[in-house]
Amino acid sequence: MQAKKGDRLHVHGNTVGEPDHSGEIIEVRGAGGGPPYVVRFDDGHTGLVFPGPDAVVETRRARQPHPQRG
């Protein structure tokens, strides 16, 4: 798993009824974009995260809207 500052981390709930958690990666502490990441979650808390197999990184480029053609 590799990420850059500004990417988003999505951690899927791994038990029934547990919600997913998402947040912005504000710091990458691993070599070459690897974990751990400092993440500011959407609920306001910030934490150091070592993502497991239930986590996905969404790159900033993937979230940018496509330019309008006119």
Rank of each mutant, 00 (worst) to 15 (best):
P19M: 09
H21C: 06
G17V: 07
G6F: 10
G23R: 04
G6V: 03
H45G: 02
D42K: 00
V49E: 08
G13I: 01
K5V: 15
G17M: 00
H66C: 07
V56E: 12
V11P: 10
P19Q: 09
Q64M: 14
E18Y: 07
V38F: 06
V57Y: 01
K5H: 02
G13S: 00
G13F: 07
G70D: 10
H45Y: 14
P53M: 02
G6A: 08
V49M: 01
V49Q: 03
Q68R: 15
G23F: 03
P67C: 13
H21D: 10
P51W: 11
E58S: 12
G32F: 09
P36E: 01
E18W: 05
D43E: 09
V39Y: 01
I25T: 04
R61L: 13
D20R: 05
R60Y: 01
T15P: 00
A3L: 03
A62V: 12
F41I: 00
G47D: 13
V38Q: 04
K5L: 06
F50D: 13
H45C: 00
V49R: 05
R63D: 04
P19V: 00
G52Q: 08
D42R: 07
G30R: 13
G32H: 02
R40N: 07
T15S: 14
R61T: 14
G17E: 00
G47F: 11
G6E: 02
A55W: 03
D7A: 06
P51V: 08
